[in-house]
Every structure is written in C-alpha cells, then in structure tokens.
Simulated scan of single mutants.
Amino acid sequence: MSNRLFRDRRDAGRALVGSLEPYRDRDDVVVLGLARGGVPVAYEIAKSLGAPMDVFLVRKLGVPGRSEFAMGAIASGGIAVINDDVVSRLGISPEVIQRVADRESRELLRREHAYREGRPMADFAGKTVILADDGIATGASMRAAIKAVRALGPSHVVVAVPTAPGSTCEELRREVDEVVCAATPSPFFAVGESYRDFAQTTDEEVRDLFRAAV
C-alpha cells in the first residue's frame, strides 16, 4: 500500500534499480521498454544495470466511444490479448474487436518503423528479459507484452514498473518469474497520479533514447 511520487519517468526508472541489483552486469539480461511511456523508465534501468535496451510495442484496444477503457491489447509479433470480462459485459462483437485491432495494428507497424530505423529486434532466446513500463492500471498491455515475449523463448521474464495496484502486481506474479513494483498506491486511481510530470512521451523521445542506448 506504498505511495510514492516520482518526478518523471526517468526518475521512476532510477527508483527501480535498487530492486533489480541481481541483474547488474550480466550478459544474459535485456531491458525491454514498452513504447512509448515505458522507454524512459527502461533507459534508466538499462543504463544502471549495464544491460542493452530494446523497444517493444503494445497498443491498447479501446472500447469504441470509450477509448481509455481497454477491451484488450496487441503487441509486436501479432500477439493479441482480449479482456473477456469487458467484452462479454459490454456485448462487444468479434467484428468490432477486429476493426479496432486492425486500426491499432497499422499504428503499431508505423511506430515499429519510426523507432527501429531498420534495427532488428534483440534476440531474447535464453535471455532474462526485464519488461519495463511507466505503470500498470488494468494490466492488459503488460499481459499482451508478456505473452508476446514468452513466444520468443526467454529463460526468465521480469516485470518492472514504478506504480501499479497491489492486486495487479500479485496477479502478474503468477504469469512471470518476478514482479518489481516501486509503489502500490491504495486506493489506486491512475498511473499519472504517481508522477509530478506525466506529459506524454513523444515519438522523438523514444527514438532518441533508443539511439542513445544502442
């Protein structure tokens, strides 16, 4: 039930490093930032641990007319995770889900090209992957990322986030090898409540941090 206020995403990334010390200076560790907001967090983790950083794309599938409300998510590699509870409760048809997924897939591909600038994705086979984001609310985006990364054959998957509901952290512990949450506010209202500066991360910032980390 800890509350903590971070200055910005990079400050939040630095706050996670102390809990990730066992992964410092190891040649089998890759830090993966969920674009866009997770990239500044991942950059600081990777820099401190002496590990390479890569960028991973996840797009929320928003309910039509309520785009902030996730009915699922898609991730790099064509992986989709659907929130069955939301879909059944709101009576959302498969056609509507497909239409939203198609639109978000196009945006995901656009960002892949914009951020990578032709660089291939890191090889995760047999590696320990630290999945970093700026926070978790429903967990839909992180679950899509976990599912997609698992398909690439890592030996271990670690989730590292500055802020999330305690219940979500506990649920994710059943899906990965370790979960590190710097703060678990209760009650939890929104990820942005844990930040002084929660301005949207831009494409340019993601690209610049990725270049600096390579």
Rank of each mutant, 00 (worst) to 15 (best):
I146T: 12
Y43H: 15
G126W: 03
A122P: 08
A51I: 05
R119D: 11
K147N: 13
E44A: 14
T128K: 05
R116C: 07
M71C: 11
D85A: 14
A132S: 13
V129F: 01
I136Y: 00
G77Q: 06
V63C: 02
I45W: 03
L49D: 10
L152G: 00
D54Y: 01
A80R: 15
R110D: 14
H113C: 08
L61W: 00
V63L: 14
A114Y: 14
D123N: 15
D84H: 14
V41G: 11
M121H: 12
M121Q: 10
L109C: 03
G38E: 04
F124H: 11
G78E: 09
L152N: 03
V39A: 03
S67E: 15
K127R: 15
I130M: 05
A101K: 14
D85T: 15
I97C: 03
G37L: 04
A80G: 02
V41L: 05
A151N: 11
R116T: 12
R119I: 10
G65P: 09
A144L: 06
K147S: 15
A46K: 11
G118L: 04
S93Q: 06
R59G: 02
V81K: 10
P154A: 03
V63R: 06
A125H: 08
Y43P: 10
S48F: 02
A137F: 01
R143G: 07
K147W: 01
V41Q: 10
I45F: 04
A114L: 15
E104I: 08
A140C: 09
L131P: 06
K60L: 00
V39Y: 01
R110G: 04
R143W: 01
P52C: 08
M71G: 05
R106Y: 07
A145L: 07
A114W: 10
F69T: 13
I97S: 02
R59D: 03
H113T: 13
D54P: 02
A144R: 08
E95R: 13
L152E: 13
N83R: 05
A151L: 12
T128C: 08
D133S: 08
D123G: 09
V96M: 04
I146E: 11
V96R: 04
A42W: 05
P64G: 10
E107R: 13
I74M: 03
V41N: 12
V39P: 03
D123F: 02
V129H: 01
V55M: 01
R103H: 09
G72K: 08
G37Q: 08
A137P: 05
A140H: 06
S48K: 13
I136M: 07
E117R: 15
